[in-house]
């Protein structure tokens, strides 16, 4: 909620107090659903505690410059775990997640990666109604993961537009024209397994990013998933706090 404080010097200023009261009322209305957040780009407020960005694990920040912005469409190809990791923090913080067209998604892994399963909706097989189902979910759910659903490119564009309008995040595991961020897992490297001993423990994903806007600057780096913890290392390492040696991809 937006913190509003009234300093004693302004106390006499009735207009300021009325504005403060209106701000409190507006934020309360937003929270209770009486009023929706303004979603037109001109009206969107950009303060830090404004809910225009879904929280992500801090280590994933290099992957998603500007965070998991509401209204964005993100594609993640090559790793279901990365999709689940990306949404874990948001789900734990109270967001709703819907998973459409992924009958094989491992909900135990989702649970271990931090998703609150009581706010996860599964639609394993939407059938030919895919576009309508995703559109309906975009209306009410904070993040919709779209797997293998029969969609035409026109449907994809319409759904992206709808997600933008409804402040929902679309995460696709298949290529999606017009996605604002495209993450591709090029390679996975597992550690912990020997020849007949140990067990799968950590993995390092080599991820490359392309996209538009703040993601247009290409990035390529490694993401280490260890249980529910995540570390990210860009290729080339960090010198004096400045990321160097980024490979320009896009």
């Amino acid at each position: 909620m937006t913190a509003v404080t009234v300093r004693p010097a302004e106390h006499a200023d009735r207009a300021a107090r009325a504005a403060a009261a209106r701000a409190v009322l507006a934020s309360a209305e937003e929270r209770t659903g009486t009023r929706r957040k303004p979603w037109r780009s001109g009206e969107v407020r950009r303060s830090a505690d404004d809910h225009t960005v879904l929280p992500i694990a801090p280590a994933l920040a290099p992957l998603l410059p500007g965070g998991l912005t509401r209204g964005a469409t993100v594609t993640v190809t090559g790793s279901t775990s990365l999709v689940l990791t990306m949404l874990g923090a948001a789900s734990a913080a109270g967001s709703w997640v819907a998973v459409v067209g992924m009958p094989a998604v491992g909900m135990l892994a989702a649970h271990q990666l931090g998703l609150a399963l009581d706010r996860v909706v599964l639609v394993p097989d939407p059938g030919p109604d895919g576009p309508r189902v995703i559109a309906a979910l975009v209306d009410g759910v904070d993040a919709v993961v779209v797997g293998d659903v029969a969609l035409a490119d026109a449907d994809r564009r319409r759904l992206s537009a709808r997600a933008r309008e409804r402040s929902a995040v679309l995460v696709a595991t298949t290529p999606w024209p017009g996605a604002s961020v495209q993450l591709t897992v090029e390679r996975t490297r597992w550690s912990g397994v020997g020849r007949g001993n140990g067990r799968l423990r950590d993995r390092v994903l080599t991820v490359s990013r392309a996209g538009r806007g703040s993601a247009a600057r290409g990035w390529r780096g490694e993401v280490r998933l260890h249980g529910g913890e995540v570390d990210t290392v860009p290729h080339g390492g960090v010198r004096d706090g400045v990321v160097v040696g980024l490979e320009r991809v896009g």
Binding site: R31, T32, G33, W96, A98, A136, L137, D139, G140, V141
Partner: peptide, 19 residues
Amino acid sequence: AAGSDLRAHRAVHRVQGLL
């Protein structure tokens, strides 16, 4: 977050109506 829960429930019921 009662508002978002409410919206999510509505959306899910809508999908149940479809499928």
